Computed example of a mutant assay.
Amino acid sequence: MTDFKDRERAEEAKFTFDNENAFRIIARRNRLLGQWAAQKMQLTPEETESYAKAVVQADFEEAGDEDVIRKLIGDLTAAGVEIDEAQVRQALSEKAVEARRQLLDKL
Rank of each mutant, 00 (worst) to 15 (best):
N30Y: 03
Q35C: 11
N21V: 09
A86K: 15
Q42W: 00
N21Q: 10
V68C: 07
V81T: 06
D6V: 14
A37C: 08
D18S: 10
T44W: 02
R24P: 06
E66M: 10
F4I: 14
D84I: 03
A37M: 05
K95A: 11
R24W: 02
D18A: 10
Q35D: 00
L76Y: 00
K95L: 00
A96S: 13
E47K: 14
D18R: 13
L103Q: 10
Q90K: 14
L92C: 03
V55Y: 01
Q102M: 15
K106M: 11
R100H: 07
L107V: 12
E62V: 12
E62R: 12
A10C: 03
T44P: 03
R31Y: 12
D67F: 09
A10N: 11
L92T: 06
P45E: 02
R31Q: 14
A37P: 03
G80T: 00
E98D: 05
A13K: 14
T16P: 01
V88D: 01
V88G: 00
K5E: 13
A91C: 05
A54K: 15
D105C: 04
W36F: 05
E98M: 12
A27R: 13
V88I: 15
Q39T: 08
F4A: 13
Q35W: 00
Q90S: 09
A79M: 03
A10G: 11
R101A: 14
K71L: 15
G64K: 08
N21P: 06
Q35M: 08
Q57Y: 02
E98V: 06
A63P: 04
E12Q: 12
K71A: 02
P45T: 05
K71E: 00
E46D: 05
A37H: 02
V55N: 03
A63I: 10
E20Y: 00
Q102F: 09
D105A: 15
R24H: 07
E8F: 14
L104S: 11
E46R: 09
V81C: 04
A99P: 07
A22Y: 02
A58P: 00
R100L: 09
V56M: 09
W36G: 04
D59L: 09
D67K: 15
R24C: 13
N19R: 11
S50V: 11
R70G: 01
L72M: 03
G64S: 07
D84S: 01
L43E: 02
I83K: 05
D84A: 04
Q102H: 06
D84M: 04
E62D: 09
A58W: 04
L33E: 02
E94L: 14
R70V: 09
A27M: 10
E8S: 08
Q35S: 04
W36L: 06
A58F: 01
E47R: 12
E8T: 12
E20D: 05
